[in-house]
Nucleic acid binder design. Structure first.
Length: 376
RNA sequence: GGUGGGGUGACCGAGUGGCUAAUGGUAGCAGACUGUAAAUCUGCCGGGCUCUGCCCUACGUAGGUUCGAAUCCUACCCCCACCA
């Protein structure tokens, strides 16, 4: 039920298929983020047509509203959201990082002051497992402690060791809840900040507790330089079991996908395509386009001439610009659709190239073209 | 024709003697965003230059008072309201 089949490798890059209770995911894959159980602004059919095979939901946000009880009562997260495909729920660990001003960490768990209504809510590894189990996504992420990218050794050590202790508690509770059924699997998360030694110790601790149906790498793209992220991926890649899918959490931008894939990553997620889409920034084959830019005022060209998404095959740049200038919500949706498709298509292309052995050269050329434009 | 009110940068609109190239807002331009407290946030926004500063032009028009005026005075032009 949680099988991962590896079809081909090229260097560290891998092409595989992940089988989950609600469907299969061809990897490398990009997973759009649907924090509140919706990929922001998009209809599930649009997400599917963009090529998404799995989406992410968030424990913290869905616990605050509508609450896991409602979701369970209405048939689980897939039916509730009408996505009806593979889903992964993040644990709220990232909110430990992003809501730093609104939370307090103890060994027991994390007390958040809800950003919705100010009430205090405590999440523990056990309660997170209960929430994720109630929602019923295919993959439940362990509750972890994410530290900032510039965190000094002691802080990263503390977060990493706590993440390991919490992993034991997560697994214990998740095992009790699942009671032999195979409708949801639990994935652990490697932490350790930017410190190689801690990253290695984190992974070792996780592998000692295996086997796992997947392993996530968290706490990257949180303020550390890119080469550091690459170094850590290179450090972990060879140690990770080949038959286990690797999920790089919260990444990324287009080049991050290719750099990650080249270092053995199978699954990605990131808010960037939808957030940037809403903010009017589009990735295209001819460079990044600011959709509000004056240059687009009367352009009848598609946003990206090489793109096959619903937006690019239907609308002109001038119309998209007009929608943004006029603050029509359709504009936010159309650029989001494009950006999501752009990343998914990039992952699809990478997969094809890995399968036919051309990944290294294709990726090199793609990145060169991208960076030649001065893109970050 | 009379009386009253008013004319400020692309637009709206503050400002009633020096700290005013002129508060705000809008429009415009550019940028940021990486497991979503984000349809958000930031910067620029009279012109020019030898650009951490300097010069020019500017608050209806023309003149005046003053060391100094968008701000005070005079005339004129225009707009609005009411009265004839």
């Amino acid at each position: 039920m949680f099988e991962f089949q590896l079809h081909a490798t090229q260097g560290q890059a891998r092409a595989g298929t992940l089988t989950l209770p609600h469907g299969t995911v061809n990897t490398p894959a990009f997973m759009p983020v649907g924090t509140h159980g919706a990929v922001r602004g998009l209809h599930p059919d649009e997400v599917r047509r963009a090529g998404a095979e799995i989406i992410l939901g968030n424990t913290y946000h869905l616990h605050l509203r509508p609450g896991e009880a409602v979701i369970r009562e209405l048939g689980g997260i897939q039916r509730f959201t009408h996505w009806n495909g593979p889903m992964l729920t993040d644990s709220g660990g990232f909110q430990v990082f992003s809501l730093e001003a609104l939370r307090k960490i103890t060994e027991t768990g994390v007390t958040f002051q809800s950003h919705v209504d100010g009430t205090y809510r405590t999440l523990t590894p056990e309660s997170v497992m209960e929430i994720e189990w109630a929602m019923g996504a295919d993959i439940a992420m362990a509750f972890d402690h994410v530290v900032p990218g510039q965190a000094p050794f002691e802080v990263a050590l503390d977060g990493m060791e706590r993440t390991v202790r919490w992993l034991d508690r997560c697994r214990q509770r998740h095992t009790e809840l699942s009671d032999g059924t195979a409708r949801q699997t639990l994935w652990p998360i490697v932490q350790g900040g930017i410190h190689d030694d801690l990253r290695r110790r984190s992974l070792d601790a996780i592998l000692e507790r295996g086997p796992w149906t997947g392993v996530a790498i968290g706490g990257l793209s949180v303020g550390e330089p890119k080469p550091v992220m690459h170094r850590i991926l290179e450090l972990l890649g060879p140690v990770l079991p080949e038959a286990t899918p690797r999920y790089l959490m919260g990444v990324g931008f287009p080049p991050d996908l290719l750099e990650g894939i080249a270092r053995g990553v199978d699954l990605f997620d990131c808010v960037a395509p939808t957030r940037n889409g809403r903010h009017g920034s589009a990735w295209t084959s001819v460079g990044r386009v600011n959709i509000r830019g004056a240059a687009l005022r009367s352009s009848n060209e598609p946003l990206d001439p090489e793109c096959d998404c619903e937006t690019c095959t239907t609308f002109s740049r001038a119309y998209l610009r007009h929608l943004f200038v006029a603050e029509e919500m359709l504009g936010l949706r159309l650029v989001s659709i494009h950006n999501v498709r752009f990343l998914i298509r990039l992952a699809e292309q990478a997969r094809r190239c890995i399968l036919d052995g051309s990944f290294a050269s294709w990726s090199r050329e793609w990145l060169q073209r991208y960076h030649t434009r001065g893109e970050p």
